[in-house]
Computed example of a mutant assay.
Amino acid sequence: MESIKHPNLDPAEFFNSVIDAKREKKEDTTYLKRVINLKDNNAQKLKDYSNSFSNNNIESLSPMNINSQIKDDLLSLYIYGAKPFRDLIQNLNEQNGGHEIAKCPHCGVNTPSTLDHFLPKTVFPEFAIHPLNLIPCCPNCNGHKSEAWHRNGERACFNVYLDKEPDEQFLFCDVMIINNIPSALYRIDGYLVKDKELYALIKRTFSILHLIELYNKASDEILKSLRKEIRHQSRNWKLSQDELFDYLLDCYKNEPCNDRDNVYCTALLNNEHSRNFFKELLTSKKI
């Protein structure tokens, strides 16, 4: 998980811009009039979300009691890929260093090709296009999260706009040797984390999004990348094999302690059996 900066857009202006881009439907001649009326009718709900977001208590919000027609009209406003939402993603990129958010901030593995509704739009259609409720996400994490937003009155999933990762390590990785090849076995543990409520939130998120299973499945690419790095560094430095591994370990100490790549590479370089695996590849020049 990686915290990112939220979009810097006025919710009411964004809401109105989405409606202004709508056109009348031949099969529903009153559609445009109805959605235009939403500008005033939904204005207070947009303010309620923004206020709750500022106070970091969006779980306190309650769904609006509306009829099925209004719900359908609100849901119809969200079309991923439409220009207002492309503009929102561009704004997000600008807020986060001016470059594209290349990895899903929830898992850090897949491409964020969707927007997750943190408060699910099926429960809260009034927030279906609130900019602060739309979070870049990959289809895998979006599907797992589904409508999970609270558990017993507490936030169910880590909100990458509001929540901050702890400085202490909670993600760990053990190395297994299967058929003479290293394999990752990730796990989380909160014994180092001072904020136990935050760790409980992280633990719920890992469970809901099935992140451990995803990390284990995606670990082969990390192993391949480390092999390439070892090969590259072995050509540039006149070091013994163990000195090379220790040098790389020192480099990884400067990386975020809960970065999945860093955690697995550190585990590999600290493991005697995986070191022997890399030594054999170096000696045979198969690395």
Rank of each mutant, 00 (worst) to 15 (best):
A102M: 12
T111G: 03
I129H: 01
I135L: 06
T122G: 08
P105K: 00
S146D: 13
C137A: 12
A128S: 15
C137I: 12
L119C: 07
A148V: 04
P131D: 05
L119D: 03
K121V: 04
C138M: 00
H99A: 12
N140Y: 14
N110Y: 05
V109P: 06
H99N: 14
I101H: 01
E126S: 15
H117D: 10
P139Q: 06
H99Y: 12
N142Q: 12
S113K: 08
G143T: 15
C138S: 06
L134I: 07
T122F: 13
E147V: 08
A148Y: 05
G143E: 09
F124Y: 14
T114Y: 09
P136Y: 09
A102V: 14
I129G: 00
P125F: 02
E100T: 11
E147P: 05
P136A: 05
D116T: 06
T122D: 15
G108K: 01
C141A: 05
E100A: 04
N133R: 11
P112G: 02
F118D: 10
I129L: 01
D116Y: 09
P139Y: 03
F127S: 10
E126I: 15
H144C: 13
P120E: 12
K145W: 09
H106R: 08
C138T: 03
K121G: 03
N140W: 12
D116I: 05
D116W: 08
L115I: 07
V123M: 11
P120A: 10
H99R: 14
C141T: 06
H117K: 09
F127A: 11
C104H: 02
F127M: 13
N133A: 13
G143C: 10
E147R: 10
H99F: 12
P112M: 00
F124T: 07
T111E: 14
I135A: 04
T122I: 10
C104M: 05
L115A: 02
L134N: 01
C138Y: 05
S146Q: 02
P139F: 02
P125T: 08
P105S: 02
P125K: 00
A102T: 15
S113E: 12
H99S: 13
F118W: 09
I101Q: 04
G108Y: 02
F118H: 13
E100Q: 08
F127R: 11
H117C: 05
F124W: 10
D116S: 03
K103H: 09
A128V: 11
P139R: 02
P131F: 00
P120H: 11
H99I: 15
I101N: 02
P125R: 01
H144K: 09
E100C: 08
D116Q: 10
T114C: 01
P139M: 04
L119Y: 04
C141S: 08
K145C: 11
P136H: 02
V109S: 09
K145A: 05
C107S: 10
K121C: 06
V109G: 06
L115S: 06
G108L: 06
N110F: 10
F127I: 12
L115Y: 02
P105R: 02
N133K: 07
H130D: 15
K121S: 04
N140M: 11
K145R: 14
V109D: 12
L134S: 02
G108H: 03
I101P: 07
T111H: 03
F127P: 07
I135D: 03
T122K: 12
H144F: 14
I101M: 07
